[in-house]
Amino acid sequence: MVDQTTKCADVPCVYAWLYCIGDLYCTKKMFSTSSQSKHWLFSGETELAKCRTEANATYISKHRGTMTDNEVTSHFLTPVEERILSRQYEVVLRKFCAEFQPPMPKCVIGTSLVFFKRFYVNNSNMNYHPKDIMLTCVYLACKVEEFYVPIGQFVKNLRGDREKFADAILSFELTLMGKLNYHLTIHNPFRPLEGFLIDIKTRCKEIENPERMRKATEEFLERSLQSDACLIFSPSQIALAAVRFGASKEGISLDRYIKEVLLKVASDKEAENMLYQLRRVKFIVKGIENVPREQAQAIQKKLENCRNQANNPDSDVYKKRMLEKLDEEEDIRVKKRSKVSEES
């Protein structure tokens, strides 16, 4: 697009460009045309589990060497163990976010969790340790959601060697973005929730004081963050399911709102599918179980033996690799410089 505009410097073309920008802006804001709906919605938990198992198998086949199958199961993490571990780290992530100073808006937590979940759909916990990825996700989400916290201030929220943490976060940032295919705009269910509340207050006046649903609704959303709902459903579906849940808790019926307002012009098929999706959201969110902590700790110990040392900031392999990379960059720079000086 840039090429075209520079080639023909007509006035109309400048307008064309502005129009395009405006349209891009509009469409970018919309979920329906986002990368989230195109690339990061899975049909269900079955498909997600399949992807995760594949990532696990790829890692094992790369690193098993000459191990027998029995040795493999005792040495490497199984897909189930991986799932427990990443869920444990999701809990840690949320706790970290809740205690973060300065206090962060909800959408940052939502976005960082989505980053984290997306990352481990196609990557194994053994390849990248969730500890590092978790922090990087939060740091990146802060930037994406325009709640920028400089790295120095960011690591003040951590205990331990802060400089080391900062180095790890910055070195994993690019990897993370690459693994996310640079799909960084996340649509969270928080804004749709507000939209539904406004809409209900305006178009469904028979409900008295809809604000009383808010508490249960927000609890539902909070709970949905623990599940894979954000990888399966659109944010508006999650939000509507939450509102419906909140309403039923308060003894309010949203039937009329859903049927006569939302589904007024929808086809039968659409209406049917949407209601089905709502029920699925509720089913998945309600089915969430707490993470068994002791088990998670044991898995973490096991991970120390089978993790990819090349991606461990504490290992010698990693340090050596980083140094080589630095040298390489330096080499390239030197070559460029000598080339420039030759030419001039």
Partner: peptide, 16 residues
Amino acid sequence: RALQDALCGLFSFPNI
């Protein structure tokens, strides 16, 4: 924006 976000994507059924 809130309303648009709320209603947009309600009928999204990826490979249902």
